[in-house]
Every structure is written in C-alpha cells, then in structure tokens.
Write a protein that binds this DNA or RNA. Structure first.
Lengths: 200, 200
DNA sequence: ATTTAGTTTAACCATTTGGTTAAACTTGAC
DNA sequence: GTCAAGTTTAACCAAATGGTTAAACTAAAT
C-alpha cells in the first residue's frame, strides 16, 4: 500500500517530474514546481540548489523506464522470437504507464546543452538484443537481416505511438481510452510482426 | 540553380528554422535568430511582429515535410505492397534531409500552449493508407491486421531512428556518415518487412 | 530631387526568472 | 527546556528576454 505522507523531497521530485515532463526543461518554471509540490520557492532551493541539479535528479530517477527491464529474459529456455515478444510486452506496458517519458528523454539527448546525459542511458538491452539475434542467426534459426535495423524497428514500433499520441488520436478520432485499448492490443500485434519478420 | 541572394525575409525564415529546430520554441532567443540571419533584432520585429508569429510561419513552411508527399502513389497500377514501399522510400529520403523535423513537430503538438497546431497537420496520408489497406483486405490480398496498427508501425519504423539518432549512434558506435548509410539501407529493409507482414 | 521601403544603431522598457537572504516560526529529538 | 532541522514569509537582486522607439542612414524608384 502506498505511503500516505510523502516526504518533502519526494513531493518535490514528483512535482518536478510532472512539470518537466509536461513543459520541458526550458518551458518549466521553478515557481510552478514549487506550487505543484505545495511548498515555496525558498524551500525548493533549500533541497535542490538549482534548476539544473533538480532536473538531473528527475532524469536519473526516470531514466530506468526509458528502456524496459528485461534482464532475465535471455536466460529463459524459450524461442528467441518469444523472448522478443516478452520484451515488447514489458516495454509497451511500461510506456502505457509513462507515456510522456520518451519525448522527455529524446528532447534531453537532442538538447545541445544536455547531450552529456546520453551517457546515462542504459543502452545495454539494445546491444543484448542485437548480440542474441546474431547467435540465433549463426544457428540458422532466424531470417538474415541487419540486427541494428531490427532493434530500431522494434523500438520504433513500440515507442512511436506514445510520441505521436495527439496526432494519432486526431487522425483516428480516438480518445484517451480508445488509445490505451489500441496500445493493449498492440502487444499481440507486434508479437505477430516479429514472428513474421524473424521466421526464415 | 539556387538563388544566390536571399531576401531578408528568406534569410530570417531560414535562420529561424535553424534556431527553432535546434533549441525548441522555449529555448530559442530572438537575438540568436537575428544573429543567425545576420540582421538586428529591430529588423526581425519589423518583418515578423512577435516570436509567436515567426514560429507559426516556420511551422507552416515545414509542416509539409512531416509526412511524405505521396499523392500519386495510390493511382499507380502496382501492388499495394509496392505502393507502401514507395511511400517508405519517399519518407525516409525526406527524413534524411530533414532529420530534426520530427522532434520539432512532436514537441509542438505535445506542447499545451501550441496544441492547436495539430490542426495544421496533413493527416490525409495516414487515413489514405488505412483506407487502401482496407480495400485490399476485402479482396483477400493482404493479411488481416488492424490498419491503424499497420500505419503506426510504418511511421514508427521510419521516424524513430531520426528521433533517437544520438542514442543509436552511441549504442552502435556509429558516426553521422555511418548513420546515414544505415538509413539508406533501411529503405530496402523496411520494404522487406512490409512484404513479410502483409503477405497472407 | 524627392519619396519610400528597408535597415541600422542604440537606447530603453516591463516582465519574467533563477536564485538569495534574513528573520521568524514550528516541531520533534535529546 | 533547548537545540537543530525544516519551513514560511517576504523582500530583494541581477540577468535575461521579448518587444518598442526614435533618429539617422542607404538605395532604389519616381
């Protein structure tokens, strides 16, 4: 059961996350974050000395959810195709709970002033997928395609709908609920795509 | 052959595009745009009365390149699969020339203060693809999948690499040149994916 | 020669913004 | 009771920023 009373530090981080993700770094105001947290600006600076420091804290806290956690997947005794399926399922469900995170992260790493943050990204999963794909390829169990292209395709198909959500909702005449249903169905849809693409 | 001397208005729009796409709306400074255009701030306001007006001009000019122009494609006497292939080819080549545009557009439509701009988007192509897919489905020529899911997948696979370019270059150890080669190869790769996914 | 649009210079303005400070107040730990 | 950390209040500061203004200058059109 969730804690009822957040500490002030937690309230600040939660508020900062909401504002930074909604308005971006440049668009966010320290006063707005203080208001959202229900405290005053002086206390905000008492906890996090500057906007940059606060932003970095938020980024560090959320960065783990830009890629899905799939550490155990590759140890399972199932087909490679099914492993990818599990990753997709975990990823889309993660994104359904953090729909604004991809744009936040992409903006950060594309921001000339923040591009060092790219070093914080856990890119291990991408490389792991490419590596495991290569092993399967040696065994002749998957179609011969470029592993990098494959990784980009999987990620793109998972992430893009959340980036373009307002456009897609407009184009498809869908509301938030309908969009979420579409994302739920998307899990099985993408599993099918993967099977079709990978099966030699 | 390109005009040698741009008019002042053209110089301003070109400079504004460069700054807005690099720094985002909130991160852009009118002074930076004036400097980039080689003029002064007074003249900048003489041509475009406000930052908002200038931004809207840039957005209107570039919005056409967020989706590829593929008007004639659906009138061609070729397979649906090949029509999609042509769209993909046109789209990726368009993005190779406008790599920063997707993030710019996605930020704009996700910005609470600019969300009306969504109405400016030419979403016709998305609907046209879904519609034409539906016709093919009736004829039993394509696998039965959700047209909306298909459209999202195509767009995601085309656009995502350009959004995540810094991340991908880091993860794959690629430089700009290698990345562009990867995008060139991606055209044929995605054509293959589409054939595999659509063929019943 | 005069007009006119385009352009520069440079100062100016009001507002916003990140950040600071100092004093007073609260509250739980010791 | 005392102490210290946490918190509020409210004023303050310096810098940045979008935007304005007025006067002077340039060059092409009339």
């Amino acid at each position: 059961m969730p804690k009822l009373d957040l500490t002030t530090e937690e309230k600040i981080l939660k508020a900062a996350e909401a504002i930074f993700l909604r308005d971006g770094y440049d668009g966010s105001r320290m006063q707005d974050i203080a208001d959202e947290a229900g405290i005053n600006k002086a206390l905000l600076h008492y906890y996090f000395r500057s906007k940059d420091k606060l932003f970095e804290h938020v980024f560090d806290l959320k960065i783990g959810t830009f890629f899905p956690k799939a550490d155990g997947v590759f140890d399972l005794d199932i087909d490679f195709t099914d492993k990818i399926g599990l990753i997709i399922e975990g990823y889309i469900n993660l994104l359904r709970e953090n729909p604004y995170l991809p744009l936040f992260v992409l903006n950060t790493v594309n921001n000339p002033e923040k591009s060092d943050f790219i070093k914080k990204l856990p890119i291990g999963l991408m490389q792991k997928i490419a590596l495991n794909y290569f092993v399967e390829l040696q065994k002749g169990k998957v179609r011969s395609i470029n592993p990098m292209q494959f990784v980009m395709s999987i990620m793109g198909m998972c992430v893009f709908p959340f980036l373009a959500q307002p456009i897609l909702m407009d184009a498809f005449g869908a509301d938030k609920k309908a969009f979420d249903v579409l994302m739920e169905q998307r899990i099985e849809e993408l599993k099918l795509y993967v099977k079709l693409i990978l099966t030699p």
